[in-house]
Design a protein around this nucleic acid. Structure first.
Length: 556
RNA sequence: GCGCCUGUAGCUCAGCUGGACAGAGCACCGGACUUCUAAUCCGUAGGUCGCAGGUUCGAAUCCUGCCAGGCGCGCCA
């Protein structure tokens, strides 16, 4: 349990005691908020609970604080002192030696340090990437992949049952268009002059596919292709592209539990059943020859068509059926990760899941903003239509999986991201991924030397930890202590970038400490104590990097 | 026209779901390797938190209105 959670427990008990003894007349207990003050003079932790309570019990905040302090019953040795400050903050100073407990926790828990059960086994599905199989993954998909995968890792670390899913849009006009694109490229390969319209997929990968197709199946017949033939070419190309996508994601370290096919929704009739369900509930109506969903009933700005005048269902109808399927699979929570250009789609889908009988909170949508690719500080123009986009594969090849993932996770999802290819390749100060990895590699190196010197690493827990009395040592231990809270906060807010920032901070404090002090020294006692501390740092660095899907190298 | 996101140091961005004098990294300038990896470290400087109101004991954070940039607004997917 983190120090913060321990303290929260103590404060809650105090409130309970004050309530029982009649010192505070409370009908209900507030949730205790504990924060780490920016200024060390304000203690290790502070709570504003007295100020929150003041108005409810109609007493001055400082007086309420006084009562809470009187009822505190902390474990022996935990609290150095407690102060009332400012308008009514209660500041807690943890006794320095009590922090050492954290290092023992890390040793005992190892890789599991930072994990918790706050998710209580709730089933969460994270659906991400879900790129249409009409072209290779580009850099924007890469960001979605990094965010989704890290988020899934973080949720799993917090005790959620997590499933990763990729939704394949393998139906509709786009697959036909893909088939047509392939067909036209085949004709061109065979030396015929045919127009290649703007509406077709322009990328060179279609030409590559055409070559492969021709090699395997020979030339195509001349003349107007049938609809069935176009569909078949579309399926052929789609399957080939999807295989590429899977390979790219695999190499990017992203592995899905399920690949969900949109076509399946048609084949097994669940799309029609979903519409029938909404119909029964009275949420559909006919107008202008089409079938509409009453999205406005849940706050969307207009109602949405689910079946067109020509009888074909819309993409939205598929998504309704897909999310009905998610509901029926029994997830407690569903997280969809989309490109921010789809944000206008959120209200209608939120409306749909409510119409399907769930709470608004059931579906959470994370919008990932666009990535601007830079080279030497200059933006690279990218258009999917024109086929001049930079693929995830190219980025991986050029800067490596680790640098790419780390950079994708170095911003809030809803903020635009500038991705400078040259910077990402640079093995220097400016590149944050190496900064963190280097800290880990340095530590690995320290332990290699320790083993060479035959220092007993098994018994580090028995070291005299009182030797860790430097301010930077205490500060490092406090930072390690906050790690479980950071992971939990990242899970709760669905913000993986918090881990990135934590790791950068930890690496910075470590590098500074490393430069100033030697860990392996003449004093056996001091060596043991310091190695125990830095072993904790190494464990947490490795664990945090693992959540991000970035390697923790033993040497660099 | 309507909606969503963004606006914090010269640049790129954090800011712990409302807390107590606004943080970091680059860049600039000046320093540190015979000792566990210099892909590192140390130091100086730099801000009307877009603007104006409001709520609150307390606002970068919440509300309203403006301004600027990005993205959407199809019986496309």
């Amino acid at each position: 349990m983190s120090m913060k959670r321990r303290l929260a427990r103590v404060i809650n008990q105090s409130l309970h005691q004050a309530q029982v003894s009649g010192s505070l007349n409370l009908t209900e207990r507030p949730t205790v908020q504990i924060e780490v003050p920016k200024i060390t003079e304000h203690g290790d932790f502070a709570t504003n609970v007295a100020m929150i309570l003041a108005s409810r019990v109609r007493r001055p905040p400082r007086q309420v604080a006084e009562i809470i302090i009187q009822h505190l019953d902390a474990p022996a040795g935990m609290l150095d002192r407690v102060e009332i400050a400012g308008p009514g903050f209660i500041n807690f100073f943890i006794h320095d030696p009590y922090w050492y407990q954290v290092l023992k926790d890390i040793q005992a828990e190892g890789e599991a340090y930072g994990r918790s059960d706050c998710g209580q086994g709730l089933r969460v599905q994270v659906e991400f990437v879900s790129a249409n199989p009409t072209g290779p993954l580009h850099i924007g998909h890469g960001r979605g992949a990094a965010v989704g995968d890290a988020l899934a890792n973080i949720l799993a670390a917090c005790g959620y049952q997590v499933e990763r899913e990729y939704y394949i849009n393998d139906l509709g006009t786009q697959m036909r268009t893909l088939g047509l694109s392939l067909y036209l490229r085949l004709r061109q390969l065979q030396g015929q002059k045919v127009d290649f319209p703007d509406t077709c997929y322009q990328g060179d990968y279609v030409i590559d596919l055409a070559r492969q197709y021709q090699a395997n199946h020979g030339p195509v017949a001349a003349g107007e292709p049938t609809e069935a033939a176009l569909q078949a070419w579309g399926e052929y190309a789609g399957a080939a592209i999807l295989a590429e996508i899977r390979q790219d994601l695999d190499d990017f370290g992203v592995h899905f539990d399920h690949w969900f096919s949109e076509a399946q929704l048609f084949q097994n009739g669940s799309l029609e059943r979903a519409l029938a369900f909404l119909q029964d509930q009275g949420y559909l109506y006919e107008a202008e020859g089409a079938l509409w969903f009453k999205a406005t009933a849940w706050g969307d700005e207009k109602d949405r068509v689910v079946r067109r005048r020509n009888g074909a269902t819309t993409y939205f109808a598929s998504d309704v059926a897909y999310h009905w399927n998610k509901i029926k699979r029994g997830f407690d929570q569903v997280v969809d990760i989309w490109g921010a250009d789809h944000h206008g789609y959120v209200p209608r889908l939120k409306a749909a899941v409510q119409a399907l009988g769930t709470d608004k909170q059931f579906l959470k949508v994370i919008l990932v903003q666009l990535v601007s690719l830079l080279r030497q500080g200059q933006p690279i123009a990218m258009t999917t239509r024109g086929g001049t986009f930079v693929t995830l594969r190219e980025v991986m090849d050029e800067v490596g999986k680790d640098a790419a993932r780390f950079i994708f996770l170095s911003r809030r999802s809803d903020a635009h991201l500038d991705f400078d290819l040259d910077l990402a390749k640079q093995q220097s100060t400016e590149n944050p991924v190496y900064y963190v990895q280097y800290a880990h590699a340095r530590l690995a190196s320290v332990f290699r030397l320790a083993r060479e010197r035959e220092i007993d690493l098994q018994g580090l827990g028995e070291a005299n930890l009182n030797r860790l009395d430097l301010p930077e040592e205490i500060a490092l231990i406090k930072l390690l202590a906050s790690y479980p809270d950071v992971v939990e906060a990242a899970a709760q807010s669905l913000e993986p970038h918090r881990i990135t920032y934590f790791l950068t901070d930890l690496a910075a404090q470590f590098h500074s400490y490393y430069y100033k002090h030697r860990f392996i020294s003449e004093s056996e006692e001091l060596t043991q104590a310091r190695l125990f501390l830095v072993q904790g740092i190494k464990t947490v660095l490795a664990q945090g990097l693992q959540l991000l899907g970035v390697e923790a190298p033993e040497s660099m």
